[in-house]
Design a protein around this nucleic acid. Sequence first.
DNA 1: GTCTATAACGGGATAGAC
DNA 2: GTCTATCCCGTTATAGAC
Lengths: 222, 222
Amino acid sequence: MTDRDTRERILDTAENLFATNGFDGTSLRSITGDAHVNLAAVHYHFGSKEALIRAVIARRVEPVNRERLALLDACEGASPDASPPVEDILRAFLRPSLRLLQSPDRGDALIRHLLGRIIISSDERMEALLIENFGEVGRRFLSALRDALPHLGRPDLAWRFLFTLGAMAFTMTDRNKLKFISGGTADPADVEAALEELVAFLAAGFRADAPHSASPHGGSAS
Amino acid sequence: MTDRDTRERILDTAENLFATNGFDGTSLRSITGDAHVNLAAVHYHFGSKEALIRAVIARRVEPVNRERLALLDACEGASPDASPPVEDILRAFLRPSLRLLQSPDRGDALIRHLLGRIIISSDERMEALLIENFGEVGRRFLSALRDALPHLGRPDLAWRFLFTLGAMAFTMTDRNKLKFISGGTADPADVEAALEELVAFLAAGFRADAPHSASPHGGSAS
DNA sequence: GTCTATAACGGGATAGAC
DNA sequence: GTCTATCCCGTTATAGAC
């Protein structure tokens, strides 16, 4: 563990610090300090802080998205004639990021936290990066959801997918809110519980009728 | 408009820049530059950047939360014997922040964006600030939701409230994602549409049965 | 109350020896 | 490939004139 490649040590350390303190909140100096690596090594191996950020992200996002697509393929293959139920589609989308790399050798929640940060970031650069990285995954899952939910129009589906991303990212980055809200009765670290809570909640949301936005002057509420 | 108080000009300008570029991404220099105010004025009026941030937030969060509580009171008063439907509770919670200050004289979406940023921020300081500011609102709404949804246990309710916050904050901060996902068919600036999409989706989610987490070895999925 | 000037610091980047 | 040393910039904060 002490003698890994410099490049990899930088990536690992940067990942941890980015997840903890955010991209702006993490200096190259703190990274190279923690990694016991020289400051200039970052520029030698990556060229700039921006490029380092992209490398850190790419290393984690790609396998997660591959796993998402594999799970989607699997559940579509299980019922080749009919559309898989929304629950299965959602699980295929959510599980890889939630239970991300729970292998014993890595800091568990940190990477989850990092990915949540990326999704959440309303920074223009990050949003562009996200759209670029999630392009194919987004298309595949939207198409699967559309097949499973023929009662929804395109805008309704888009809104609901956005809500899904929000709920997921919020779950991934949360540190204290759930504990506070639940008075300690819910455990934010319980990945399986989080997944099933999300799936039950979101699936019902997707199945709901679309709001009556077609009516020209929205009817009931105050 | 040119001759407002220095203090207020700082607050307004800071609000816009914080909403656009985030707290870390906004320097005091950019604020005082845009506001045509001297750099030192910030320290004179507020003492520090941190204190300025708190002032900017407080000015917007308080009226929103007051409106939330007033709307909740109103819909609880409308049916004194029974619990109001989930939809009304959700609308009371969501509407004030979504359609925040749509008065003609202020930059509409920016404050919404700012509040979303606060909710979303997984920074420890911000999370503490959020919990502190949302304390009473959280308690009141959780209690109303519990009454309206007796089938949910405390942890299930807490998870679902967390998802609600995530979907709401994500909607509030989104710039390009919805347009991308929907292929341009959904309009992120349409506040009433966003509200009704959120309410329909979330209400169905809240009404869903809780996942079978009581069973010792979760049953069906792969 | 508002300004100028500057302190004190930390940041990213780079040149050049080894 | 890895180091030291340094450049140069932008930041918050403050002292002190007006």
